[in-house]
Design a binder for these strands. Structure first.
Length: 416
RNA sequence: CGGGGUAUAGUGUAACGGCAGCACGAGUCCUUUGGGAGGAUUUAGUCUCGGUUCGAAUCCGAGUACCCCGACCA
């Protein structure tokens, strides 16, 4: 798209009430607008990033048999009473409201109640199992302290997958499949995750698993082996830092981290409360065994910025970036503009997403500074200087190196 | 929910209890064009309520919002 038409502008200085790196950079570059603590609007650039993250998650979920649905935010009280969570557990952080007749509703902080109830209507036989159902949706939680920009919001994007099984073995098998899918998702987001054991938080006596990204401003603390033989959330850590990993004898470390995903067994807690049974091969009526798997999509956006930035701005991973190419002419002379316009059309024909800085009366320096702030992976600069050699300048955001290429070899370079 | 801090224009930042100023942004004009360039001109602000005072952005009280630490965190 043409930058002259972009709804947002960049801002030189961060507002004084944003302290976290992700909030500062995302605000300055025009990706988000804060409405209140923990609640953000995703502006055109931010929305593109969020959709890219969601699409990666969607692709990987579909690959492991996930079927996407969309459940309501507004949820009836009676379902939450069936699981005794209306005012306990997660119910304590649920935003609640009433209509004019006094009927009570909650804004969904999670969707076990809604989905298990639906599942109980459709799953009747072992032949209906397993089932893998997910959604990507906005969640609401009354966080006592929203903080750190997108890292802990009151309203945030989340993918939640729920699996339904006829046996514990089948559940465990799928749990490992989801684990692998999660690693793929985070790899595509260029997040190095450490899978970490955490407490069952009342849902299960077993451990659950969190996917943690080391980041100095993260709000979790984990204890981990530097070779990743194990890692545990500090809440439950049996080891201390400075002790040795039993597997490799390396010194165990402690670090701050951001939890970007978690997976855990639900057992039969919800199927029992919501009457979700099936008839097994042996003719017996049994409770459905469930698993739950979350990824915070908007939190990933924040986490990526926390991890991928420099003193000039954001450095987006290619699959996440709002555009692949930032096309920048540096002089207002006719030949430069004409070449740039042609290239802009051509890139679009090649289905390469491009932000074209067609704004007039802007110095080159200003364009470069803004480009670095926004963080698009490839910067193409068109100028008289290089056109005279029939070349254009290409620079990767994450590298210092500048290359001069002929247009003919440009596409190969972009696809490499 | 406990503790600490902050609140002045879209953003950043000044002003002893005495005329609310500067920079950036935005508008107009000119110059400039390889790292947020320069000049002229215009634009827009003291969180809310109450108190003290001849006079409050400034002092006092309450409220609200935001930030940080902690508690909490399907």
């Amino acid at each position: 798209m043409r930058q002259s038409e972009l709804f947002t502008k960049t801002i030189k200085e961060a507002p004084k009430d944003e302290k976290s790196i992700n909030a500062q950079l995302l605000f300055r570059a025009g990706f988000v607008h804060k409405e209140m603590a923990g609640v953000y609007t995703f502006l055109p650039l931010g929305n593109r990033v969020l959709k890219n993250i969601e699409n990666i998650i969607r692709e990987e979920m579909n690959k492991i048999g996930g079927q996407e649905i969309l459940m309501p935010v507004l949820q009836p009280k009676y379902l939450w009473e069936k699981t005794d969570r209306w005012s306990k557990g997660v119910g304590k952080v649920m935003y609640k409201t009433k209509d004019d007749s006094g009927k009570e509703f909650g804004l969904g902080p999670t969707h076990e109640e809604i989905l298990t109830n639906i599942a109980s209507k459709y799953i009747k036989s072992y032949s209906d199992l397993p089932a893998y159902i997910y959604q990507i949706q906005t969640k609401f939680r009354k966080e006592p302290r929203a903080r750190s920009g997108l890292l802990r919001g009151r309203e945030f994007g989340m993918k939640d997958l729920y699996s339904f099984h006829s046996s514990e073995e089948d559940f465990k098998n799928y749990y490992e499949i989801v684990k692998k899918a999660y690693f793929k998702i985070f790899k595509r987001c260029e997040l190095s995750v450490i899978i970490t054991e955490a407490s069952g938080a009342g849902f299960t006596k077993e451990y659950t698993h969190e996917f943690q990204v080391l980041a100095k401003d993260g709000e979790d603390s984990i204890i981990y082996c530097p070779r990743f033989h194990f890692a545990q959330n500090k809440e439950i850590a049996k080891f201390k830092n400075d002790s040795l990993c039993p597997a490799c004898k390396k010194t165990i470390q402690e670090g701050r981290s951001i939890e970007v995903g978690n997976i855990f067994p639900l057992g039969t807690k919800y199927s029992k409360d919501l009457n979700a049974y099936f008839i097994d091969k042996d003719g017996k009526r049994k409770l459905i065994i469930m698993g739950c798997y979350g990824i915070g999509s908007s939190r990933i956006m924040g986490a990526i910025v926390e991890v991928h930035h420099d003193d000039k701005g954001i450095i987006w991973p290619e699959e996440i970036a709002p555009f692949k190419v930032h096309l920048i002419p540096v002089e207002d002379n006719q030949k430069v503009i004409k070449t740039t316009e042609n290239l802009y059309q051509d890139l679009q024909k090649q289905k390469i997403e491009v932000l074209y800085d067609d704004r007039k009366k802007r110095g080159a320096g200003e364009k470069f500074v803004e480009s670095d702030l926004i963080g698009i992976p490839f910067r193409l600069v068109i100028s008289q200087k290089t056109l005279s050699q029939k070349k254009i300048e290409v620079k990767k955001r994450k590298e210092k190196k500048i290359e001069l290429l002929r247009v003919s070899s440009l596409y190969k370079f972009l696809k490499s």
